[in-house]
Design a protein around this nucleic acid. Structure first.
Lengths: 252, 252
DNA sequence: TAGATTTTTGTAAAATTTTAACACGTTTGA
DNA sequence: TCAAACGTGTTAAAATTTTACAAAAATCTA
C-alpha cells in the first residue's frame, strides 16, 4: 500500500512534471499530507524526484533541456485546464488529422492525448515538443515569428503553408470570450491564423475555461455560431450554456 | 554588477551542483539574502537552476543522471559543446540576422547568445523556446514536420518560407564529418534545408565538436570549401586544421 | 547636467512550508 | 501472545519564502 502509493506518486510526477503538495493531496484523499511528505522524501532519497518548495518535480522533467512548465507560472487554474484538456482528448479519433493551437490549455491537451496514429498541426512550440514525445503521433509545426509570451508562432506565410494541408478537426483555446465579441485574442496575426484554421477545419472545438469569460481582447477570431463544440469546466454559467445550446452547439 | 553577480551564481552552482542560501551569502557578503533570492528567481526563470528549499541547484547537475533520447544526447560532451557555443556566440554582431539549426550544440549556442537586437531563424523547437526567453531578440521558427529525435523541423515548404527572408549569417552544427564526405546528416529533408540555408547565407559558420569527426551520415549538406569559419574544440586534430586553413577557412 | 523615471536593493512583517515530536493503531515474527 | 518495528495522523515549533514598501543607484531625457 505504501509501496503502491509511492509508485503512483512517481508516475504522476513523471506525467505532470511538477505537483504541489495540495495537488497531490487531492489525488490521495485518504492519507495525510504528512504521509505524502514522507513519501516524497523517500522518492527524493531514491533520486527519482526533486523536492521543491511547495511540492516536488520529476527528475525527467528537469532533464528536458529547456522544458517549459517548471519555469512557467502555470499555477493559475491548472486543474480546470487539465480537466478541460481531458475532455477534449477523449474526443479525438485515431487516424484523424487535427489542429491544436499554442496556448497553455492546448499544452495540457497535448499531454493528455494518448499515443495514437494521428496527424497534428500546431503553432505552439511547447505543444510540438510535448507531442514529439509520442511515437505513433505525427507532429507538424507551423512556422513564423515566435510570440514570446505564449511560445506560439504566427505569420502571414502560414496561409501558403496551409494550402496543401488538410485537417478535419481544430481544437483551439481562447484567451477571452464574451457573447457579444465572441472569441478574441491579443494579436492580429494570431487572429488571422485562427480564422484560417477555422475555415480549413471541418469541425471546430473550442476550449474555454470559465476564468476567461467576460474578458475581451482586441481581435475576434470566431463567434459563437462558428464553433461546433464548446469544452469548458464546471463553473460555466448556466445562461451562457443555454445561449450555446440554442444554436445547437454542444457544451461539455 | 547585477548581471555579473547572477552569472557568477550560475557558475558557482554549475560547479558545486547545489548551494544553500547561507552558503551563497558567504560568497557574496556585500548583498543581502533577499537580493540573492531574487537572483536565484531570475535564474530559475531562465531555466538554468532549480530552486529548492534552502537554496538552489544547477540544472546540469540534475541532467547528469540518465534520461530520454534527446536528453541523453545533450548529456554527452556537454562541456566541449558549451565551449564551442561560447566561441560562436562571441561572433554574433548586434543588429544582424542569422540562422541557427536545431541540433544540441545549437541549443547551447542559443543559451549563450546574449540578449541583443538580432533576428534569428531556426528550425529547432528547443532552440526557439530558449531564444524566446530573451527580450530584445526576435525569433522566427521554420515550420514543417517535427523530427522526434532532435526536435527540429524540416519540410520542403521551407523553401517558400525562405523566399522573403534574408540573413547574413548561418551558424550550423553537424552530426558527422569526414574530409571526403564533408558535413553530413541523417535526413534527406534536413540536408535539403541546410543546403538552402547555405546558399541563402552570406557566411556560413560550422560548429563541429571533435567527437563527430570520422563519422558519416547518408546526406552531405556542405563540403569543406563551403564554410567560412569552423568552430571546434581543443581536441581538433592538427592535420585537419591545416586542411581547413589551406582553404582559407578560419579554424577557432 | 538637472530632473524624472526606472531598476536594483534592503528591511521587516506576513504567509507558507517544512520539520520535529509524540501518540496511536497495525503488522511482523519469535 | 507479546513486543518491536512500521506506518500514520496531529499538532506545535522552526525555517524558509514571499510580499510590501522605502531607499538608493542607475539610466534616460530634455
Amino acid at each position: 500500500m505504501k509501496r503502491d502509493r509511492i509508485e503512483e506518486i512517481a508516475e504522476l510526477l513523471d506525467k505532470r512534471g511538477k505537483l504541489s503538495l495540495e495537488q497531490l493531496a487531492t489525488y490521495f484523499p485518504n492519507v495525510s499530507q504528512m504521509t505524502l511528505r514522507r513519501d516524497l522524501f523517500q522518492l527524493e532519497q531514491a533520486g527519482k524526484i526533486i523536492r521543491v518548495r511547495g511540492g516536488a518535480m520529476s527528475v525527467k522533467e528537469v532533464q528536458k533541456v529547456s522544458g517549459e512548465p517548471y519555469t512557467k507560472k502555470t499555477a493559475i487554474h491548472t486543474d480546470e485546464k487539465i480537466k478541460i484538456a481531458q475532455k477534449a482528448a477523449a474526443l479525438i479519433d485515431e487516424g484523424c488529422s487535427l489542429f491544436i493551437d499554442g496556448g497553455t490549455t492546448a499544452m495540457y491537451l497535448a499531454k493528455e492525448i494518448p499515443d495514437m496514429f494521428i496527424n497534428v498541426f500546431t503553432n505552439g512550440l511547447a505543444v510540438a515538443i510535448e507531442l514529439a514525445q509520442k511515437r505513433k503521433l505525427n507532429v507538424n509545426m507551423l512556422g513564423g515569428q515566435v510570440m514570446k509570451d505564449n511560445l506560439s508562432t504566427a505569420s502571414p506565410v502560414a496561409k501558403s503553408y496551409f494550402e496543401d494541408t488538410n485537417f478535419e478537426l481544430a481544437i483551439i483555446s481562447t484567451t477571452a470570450f464574451t457573447p457579444e465579441s465572441g472569441f478574441t485574442c491579443g494579436s492580429q496575426v494570431e487572429a488571422d491564423l485562427l480564422r484560417l484554421v477555422r475555415r480549413k477545419a471541418k469541425s471546430l472545438y473550442m476550449m474555454l475555461d470559465s476564468s476567461k469569460i467576460g474578458k475581451i481582447m482586441p481581435y475576434t477570431f470566431a463567434r459563437v455560431e462558428d464553433i461546433d463544440v464548446l469544452i469548458t469546466d464546471d463553473n460555466f454559467p448556466a445562461d451562457l450554456k443555454t445561449l450555446f445550446s440554442e444554436k445547437d452547439i454542444v457544451v461539455m
